[in-house]
Amino acid sequence: MSTLPLEIRSLNVAYHRKMVLWDADLSIRPGRSTAIVGPNGAGKSTLLKAALGLIPAASGEVLFYGEPLKKVRSRVAYVPQRESVDWDFPVSARDVVAMGLYKKIGWCLPVRARHRRMADEALADVGLADFAGRQISQLSGGQQQRVFLARALAQKADLHLMDEPFASVDAATEQAILTLIERLKLEGGTVVCVHHDLDTVAEYFDDVILLNMRVVAQGPASEVLTPENLRKTYGARLTLLDEAVVDLSRPGAPRES
């Protein structure tokens, strides 16, 4: 029985008669961090959402640790995009993180002090200990992202699926996320992120999946990010300048300041 954290076979997703994902085939290796990159509209978020059953797929198979999602939900944590919620909602950072514990608390039972303490611990892990009681609209974008991360942390899952966690965040949050990813890996966990920035992908992640409706290539970052593969993924959109930048970002390449 396969124990890969995530295996996707022939996933097809259509939206209003337009194909968004075409025969996507990929596997995620355990204990590593993987980035899913591709041009806008390439289906990156769709891949994540379809794998999680949030949007319907036309066909295909998705297995988490060899099982369908509903059998292993407690082992999978999802960090959605920030835009997916209304940050005006009357809850505090602590309340949001505690939501990661709801499943463990169970139906109808209340959130107790010890759960709130656990939430505070998770918040401390992402550097937001002082902000636990703040209403979420009073947090900056990066802080909100970290609240989402703390929520996933609180779940104590094995596989973390994150949708653009690095989008529009400040340096401190970026650092916090990277530290978190390293820690999760150290504890034996697996991290998969939809990532938008070619510039940083080789630096932040072990493995890369290049996606443009189909999976163009997957594997270790240093092997996958070839000009050839990038051309296939980004097509005409990748300019010479971008290529030069990506070249430089590969580990081992000389860095400019």
Binding site: R17, A50, G53, I55, P56, A57, A58, S59, G60, E61, V62, P68
Partner: peptide, 8 residues
């Protein structure tokens, strides 16, 4: 055949 199909 263009109807929405079910989730996995």
């Amino acid at each position: 055949g263009h109807g929405r199909t079910s989730v996995l």
